[in-house]
Design a protein around this nucleic acid. Structure first.
Length: 285
DNA sequence: CTCTGGAGGCGTCACCAGTT
DNA sequence: AACTGGTGACGCCTCCAGAG
């Protein structure tokens, strides 16, 4: 695969990840300090499944559309009920069980590399149709934040401007900190909280808004107006793209931190299960 | 030192959903 | 219906590490 093609392929794969929320009862003792662990780094660059096996709960594409995905209630062997947005594919989502309420996120891989390649090229239009219906990163992160009391949301630029004249909207007291290109977000407990900078370059102050249509007469003026509009649009889109990429990076980091946390939790639960098995199993020999 | 491939950023276009 | 913002896709560029 060519360099460029590979890159695009990776990007496409990343797009197939969708955020799903699983409300379960978890041991709240695990902190996000592990989130910075490089060992838990998702392998998004390789296009492989980005969620390590132990923490993996894969969810079918039903949740990828805009709007509310179907909610599935999953009865765990322990008798606890887990609410899942989307459809559980994995035969054993049951590793999620524990005493206290916690909200966890699960990254979904719709398809693995092998399956995608073996099936050949997916109908691009169809795929685009499906994938383009993902909610924005801001929406996703805000939804995640809303599941955890006390965790501030990423605010709309509008409200940022209204509330904080300076460019920084401080949203949490840092404990463990991730540094991002435009700000930093912190991990307090389970969910990272964000410190978002308002866009420093909304519109250059020199930009003059459109002249009144009535004042344009000659074709030359119309052409200039069209050019000006185009440049304005390009500039806005440039800024929008930067913002979008920044959010996307934070979104991916958020997923990575969740993976790390879930790995630790899962490991603990497995160990606990083994211990209980040892205690409860009748000694036959 | 040069070459090569991976990784990541940027600008732009196209498209979509939401807003006016 | 027109406008606007968000985001995937694409092509290009730069940086860096490892190989030769």
């Amino acid at each position: 695969m060519s360099k460029c093609g590979r890159k695009k392929y990776i990007k496409t794969n990343l797009r197939q990840m969708t955020m799903e929320t699983v409300e379960s009862q978890q041991d709240g003792s695990v902190t996000d300090s592990v989130a910075e662990s490089k060992s838990a780094h998702m392998q998004t660059q390789t296009g492989q499944s980005s969620v390590p096996t132990l923490a993996q709960v894969s969810v079918a594409g039903a949740g990828t559309g805009r709007g509310s995905p179907a909610v599935t209630l999953v009865q765990l062997p322990s008798g606890q009920t887990v609410r899942v947005q989307g459809v559980i594919q994995t035969p054993q989502p049951s590793v999620i069980q524990s005493p206290q309420i916690q909200t966890v996120q699960v990254a979904t891989i719709a398809e693995t590399d092998e399956s995608a390649e073996s099936e050949g090229v997916i109908d691009s239009h169809k795929r685009r149709e499906i994938l383009s219906r993902r909610p924005s990163y801001r929406k996703i992160l805000n939804e995640l934040s809303s599941d955890v009391p006390g965790v501030p949301k990423i605010e709309e630029e509008k409200s940022e401007e209204e509330r904080t004249p300076p460019n920084i909207a401080t949203m949490a007291v840092p404990t463990s900190i991730y540094q991002t290109s435009t700000g930093q977000y912190t991990a307090t407990g389970d969910m990272p909280t964000y410190q978002i900078r308002a866009p420093a370059t909304a519109l250059p102050q020199g930009v003059v808004m459109a002249a009144s249509p009535g004042s344009l007469h000659s074709p030359q003026q119309l052409a200039e107006e069209a050019t000006r509009k185009r440049e304005l649009r390009l500039m806005k889109n440039r800024e929008a793209a930067k913002e979008c990429r920044r959010r996307k990076k934070e979104y991916v980091k958020c997923l990575e931190s969740r993976v790390a946390v879930l790995e630790v939790q899962n490991k603990k639960l497995i160990e606990e299960l083994e211990t209980l098995k040892d205690i409860c199993s009748p000694k036959t020999d």
